[in-house]
Amino acid sequence: MSHPRARLIYVPLVLGSLVMMFPLWWMLNISLATPERAGAATVSTDALRLWPSDPQWSNYPEAMREVGSREWVGFLDALTNSVVVTTITVIATVLSCSLVAYALARIRFRGRRSLFLVMLATMMLPPQVTMIPLFLLFRALGWIDTLLPLIVPAFFGNAFFIFMYRQFFASVPEALVEAARIDGCGHVEIWWRIMLPLCRPVTAITAVFTFIFVWNDFLGPLIYLHADERVTLAVALNSFRNRYGGLEDVQYLMALSLVTMVPCIVLFFVAQKQLIEGLSKGAVKG
């Protein structure tokens, strides 16, 4: 390909990027606007400028102070809850999914194939179907208004990630497992010392996707968490809505939404290499 023609590819790429960046720019723009301009921007695009003439950086600390019913404490509680739920869920998902996948890929037992198929079938089940039964179950266990309904299910695996891990484990040469057996490893040690270190790209995908999903999850915490001090950041953002569902202080909502996004963006850039490696696994042989 000639040099100028090669540069042409950047035209659709830049256009695509602009489309993808638009909501972000819009959020940033409003987050820095004065209350009047921000309110106007929600109903008309006339108030929008490429960059606000008088950026209100104080909107960010203000948003953190104003969230929830208690100043600062509401934000810190929500942040702590989000960090706790996300951290435990990510660790639990990686451990449980890889362990189940190891068993399905490497241990021969009766009904292994059927179990795998049943597990795959659960992927077809819309989450809305299990919402009410799960709520009833957790209520019967007395877990409503605790973080447990958000954390405990992660210890029981996730069909999609189990499938991903299983495909990776199945591609690891049998001789490696056999060498480990002769070297004195049992199944748990083979999983922990050989398989998990080998599947870092898959673990990166599982961890990043789970992190983003749990960190941004709104519905789950909304169903199970009621008290102000229990909610996660995603639900806490909702406090900028008034009792009639309308938006108040939209500049604060946008500012806090951007703050909430920061960990996801940082995580993506940190794990980018592993993530792309993991996504291309299986696509290219060797």
């Binding site: 490696l176 056999e178 002769i182 070297d183």
Partner: peptide, 20 residues
Amino acid sequence: VPAKDRDVAMVFQNYALYPH
């Protein structure tokens, strides 16, 4: 007796070295 307790060592065709 399981493989680990037989006190034998094996060299595999494709080496089977731990890549990590």
